[in-house]
């Protein structure tokens, strides 16, 4: 894992609170606005930034993230431009880890070796590739690890104890626990079930466990952060962006401040999380 990722988890742990991971779609609604959004996420208190790579066929995503990807593609976003976003962000901020999240085909077409070289050079710390399970590790996971980029795996409610070791084997950075069987943007299940699942995963690994899918409010962040090492918020941010756009899907003056305000609330939520746990 990159030193930057390790340092961030260590620093946040020292504060006695979970990390806040925020997802947004690179290039939504356009390149410049999304760079401003990325910077706003960091300023509002996001600890790790998940940078979405748009794909025409996002099979694991709900309508909100599907539409965000369509807006980005329409505005001309590509994988190369998403790497450029990372590079531009990194020029001003050397401490916030960036994790690319998307699907394999754009990376495969870009070329795995070339992608890893360019991603590392752009200051990317890790990646989540939804359609590459451990059975497909030779494709990208092993080459990424060899280059020192984290390959963050999704563990899900269907990942039972028998399968968990396989899922965790080449995982690095953190483990992303998907709170439900479903797509992004669904409703959050009972948080006590999630706590049990997090405990089960932690029994198998020393890596931090972050929980995502369905986390939308500061209250969710606080409740889940009571047991998990981090919470991931995506659809709520993407929805916030969408609600600020013009009918033609263009950015307005409210776009960036809206995201910033939302994430400030979420950051307060994770900061209250361990207090909640101690109650």
């Amino acid at each position: 894992m990159t030193a930057r990722m390790e340092q961030r988890f260590a620093d946040v742990a020292a504060e006695g609170r979970p990390v806040l991971v925020t997802y947004f779609m690179g290039g939504d609604p356009d390149f410049d606005t999304s760079l401003a959004i990325m910077k706003a996420l960091q300023q509002a208190g996001a600890d790790i930034i998940e940078l979405g790579v748009p794909f025409s066929d996002p099979m694991a995503d709900g309508p909100a993230i599907q539409l965000a990807g369509q807006r980005a593609l329409k505005a001309g976003q590509t994988l190369a431009k998403t790497l450029e976003l990372a590079r531009r962000f990194r020029a001003d901020d050397q401490r916030t880890p960036i994790v690319l999240m998307g699907y394999y085909n754009p990376i495969y077409i870009y070329g795995v070796e070339r992608f890893l070289t360019d991603a590392l050079e752009a200051g990317v710390d890790g990646m989540i590739v939804v359609d590459l399970p451990p059975e497909m590790d030779d494709e990208l996971c092993i080459p990424a690890l060899a280059k020192g980029i984290s390959f963050i795996r999704l563990a899900t409610p269907t990942t039972d104890d028998r399968r968990l070791p396989k899922v965790l084997e080449n995982t690095s950075g953190f483990v992303y626990y998907v709170s439900m069987t479903g797509i992004t943007g669904s409703a959050l299940p009972d948080t006590s079930l999630i706590a049990g699942a997090v405990a089960r995963i932690k029994a198998h690994t020393s890596l931090p466990v972050c929980v995502g899918f369905g986390v939308k409010t500061a209250d969710h962040a606080r409740a889940i952060g009571a047991t998990a090492d981090g919470v991931v918020v995506g659809t709520a941010i993407v929805n916030q962006i969408a609600s600020s756009l013009t009918e033609e899907g263009r950015a307005t003056e409210a776009t960036v401040p809206g995201v910033e305000a939302l994430v400030r609330g979420l950051a307060a939520g994770v900061r209250a999380a361990r207090l909640a746990a101690a109650e």
Binding site: M59, Y104, P133, E135, L154, T156, D160, R163
Partner: peptide, 12 residues
């Protein structure tokens, strides 16, 4: 060919 699917579907 291969199995390029989300982890949720893999056990199934």
């Amino acid at each position: 060919g291969g199995r390029f699917v989300a982890e949720t579907l893999m056990p199934l």
